Every structure is written in C-alpha cells, then in structure tokens.
Simulated assay, not measured.
Amino acid sequence: MTGTVNATAPAPVVGRTREGIAERLAQDLQDGYVVNLGVGIPLLVPRYLPEDKEVVLHAENGVLGIGGDADPHEADPDLTDAGKQPITLIPGAAITDSALSFAIIRGGHLDATILGALQVSASGDLANWYVPGRNPAVGGAMDLVAGTPQVWVAMEHVDRKGRPKIVQECTMPLTGHKCVTRIYTDLAVFHVVDGQLRLVECAPGVSPDHVREHTAATYTEDLAG
C-alpha cells in the first residue's frame, strides 16, 4: 500500500545565493582597483577575490585595505567594516578618520563602489537609503554614487514580497540619478550602457524568460552564446 505524502515539497532554488552573487561580482573586479564596499551582500565580496588580482577594499568608516574574515576568537571589536562586522587587514592597510575616508570618496580616488539597492531604474537611477516605515538612513551612499565612476549593485532580484527591484522608474526617494553601471542579482547580470539597461548574463539554471518575468523595466538582451 502506497503511503500519502502530506508535506509540501520545498520549491527548487532558482539562481544564485547571496554568496553566489558576491562570488560572481568578484570575478569582474580588475587588478589594481580600489573599491568601496557597502553593507549587505557587498560585504561578502572579500571572500571571493581572485588570488591573481590585487584589489584594495575600502570601507567608509575609515578602513583602506580590508582583508578576509576575522577569526571569531581573535577578532578586534574596534576593527570592523561598514556593517560593524569584524575584519582583518591586508599588509599596508590604513586606518583613517571619517574626514579622510570621505575625502577618498569625494576626491575621485575609488574605481568602483559596490552597494545594495531597494530599486534600480531602467536608466540606472538608484534608490537605496529610505525604507518606507523605517527611520531614514542615508549613510555615505549619496557621496559614493556621486564620487565613483562605476557603481555596481549587488542585490536579490525581487523583494520579500516578490516585487521586482529592477523597475522602469524608481518610486522610492533617489540616492543618485543615472549612476548605476552594473547590476548583479541572483537571477542575472545587467549593464547600464548609455542610459539603457542591457541583460548580459543569466544565472546558471535561469532562463531569459524567467528574468523577464521578474523584471519590471524595459531592457535589451546581449547574451553571450
């Protein structure tokens, strides 16, 4: 006699994990880059930096030269990243005050900034500082997107309610206007070229149709192969 299974089978995982997003993004960092890391998924990037490339990581709280994860038993509580997580330092790293840290940002000394987002528009507008119903928290994001030539977003493709985060027009207050140059999500990689969104890669196991179903912005496709 065949038994009846009452439990509902879990839905299959589609796309990359948060760690997978960080790993995929890290592959595109160029040798010699100086890169700011925002909170959230960007803080996972140090785990996946290619060994054959030298990338200097910056945190707006005053660290230039972030290393790998700190041993929990040896972590210095006064040495943290922008998300207040313990870190290590690479040889030659520097600790600065807030004024110098923001002078690095505002002076154009970063090659890229990697941050999370609540919404990104079809033309590269960014909204990431205000969550409705919560206290506003601007942080240094506005300085970063204004002072950095490349702004890479690392985020889940949809929010917790399943709503697309890549939209035609942002409905949340903007952090920056037409500033985003790349988007890395669990489903895909997009580039913003001449103010237009371009799908350049689908995550393993994800079809272009699946990406389109979960994206509320218009875009073109430039998929290799």
Rank of each mutant, 00 (worst) to 15 (best):
G83W: 08
G83K: 03
K84Q: 15
Q85I: 12
P86V: 02
P86M: 00
I87L: 04
L89R: 12
L89T: 06
I90D: 02
I90M: 01
P91S: 05
P91E: 01
P91K: 01
A93W: 05
A93C: 05
I95F: 02
T96V: 15
T96L: 13
T96D: 00
T96N: 06
D97G: 08
D97T: 00
S98D: 09
S98L: 11
A99Y: 05
L100G: 00
L100P: 00
L100D: 09
S101K: 03
S101D: 03
F102T: 09
F102S: 10
A103G: 09
A103H: 10
A103D: 12
I104V: 15
H109M: 15
L110G: 04
L110W: 14
D111P: 09
A112P: 07
A112N: 07
T113E: 04
T113W: 03
L115S: 01
G116S: 13
A117K: 00
A117D: 00
A117P: 00
L118D: 06
Q119M: 06
Q119K: 11
V120Q: 13
V120N: 02
S121I: 11
S121Q: 11
S121V: 12
S121A: 09
A122P: 11
S123P: 00
S123D: 10
G124W: 15
G124N: 09
G124V: 11
G124E: 06
G124L: 05
D125V: 02
L126S: 02
L126V: 04
A127Y: 12
N128Q: 12
W129R: 14
V131Q: 04
P132G: 07
G133S: 06
R134Y: 15
R134Q: 13
R134W: 15
P136V: 07
P136E: 07
A137G: 01
A137M: 12
A137Y: 13
V138N: 08
V138S: 09
V138A: 13
V138K: 11
G140V: 11
G140Y: 12
G140L: 05
G140H: 08
A141M: 10
A141F: 08
M142P: 01
M142A: 10
M142K: 13
D143E: 15
D143T: 06
L144H: 08
L144S: 07
V145F: 03
V145E: 01
A146V: 10
P149K: 06
P149Y: 12
P149F: 08
Q150N: 07
V151R: 02
W152M: 11
W152P: 04
W152C: 07
W152R: 03
V153D: 01
V153A: 08
A154L: 04
M155L: 15
M155H: 03
M155F: 09
M155V: 14
E156I: 12
V158H: 02
V158A: 06
V158N: 09
V158S: 02
D159V: 04
D159K: 06
D159G: 07
K161V: 03
G162R: 10
G162T: 09
G162E: 07
G162N: 03
G162K: 06
R163V: 10
R163Q: 09
R163D: 02
P164G: 12
K165C: 14
I166E: 00
E169M: 10
E169I: 13
C170K: 05
C170Y: 07
T171Q: 06
M172G: 08
M172N: 10
M172I: 12
